[in-house]
């Protein structure tokens, strides 16, 4: 099971333009990470999802997109597991 999890992280982190991936639980404890996102960021990812959920009208799980100068962060959650993906921003 752990191999499958690690293979999935490896698969997504090796995709084109992906700079890093992080998987965390609801408590902000890092389950796995690869690339430029380190495990310390797990706390912020879970906090962002919980805050975003608190402003949602029907308490549904949010998908968050954060855009910086060079990177797009996509954060999604399912069953108390949150995934953050850092993607190189397109220059066009």
């Amino acid at each position: 099971m752990e191999n499958q999890f690690e293979n999935t992280i490896q698969k997504y982190s090796s995709m084109e333009d992906v700079k890093g991936i992080l998987v965390t639980d609801n408590n902000g404890l890092c389950l796995g990470c690869k690339g430029t996102i380190n495990s310390n960021k797990a706390a912020y990812v879970s906090s962002l999802v919980n805050r975003a959920q608190s402003i949602s009208l029907d308490n549904s799980k949010p998908t968050i997109s954060i855009e910086t100068d060079n990177t797009n962060f996509l954060i999604s959650s399912e069953n108390e597991i949150m995934v953050a993906l850092a993607k190189q921003k397109m220059n066009n």
Binding site: N27, C30, N40, A43, Y44, S46
Partner: peptide
């Protein structure tokens, strides 16, 4: 509370 943040 956010356990990861407290550990940080």
């Amino acid at each position: 509370s956010n356990t990861g943040y407290l550990l940080n």
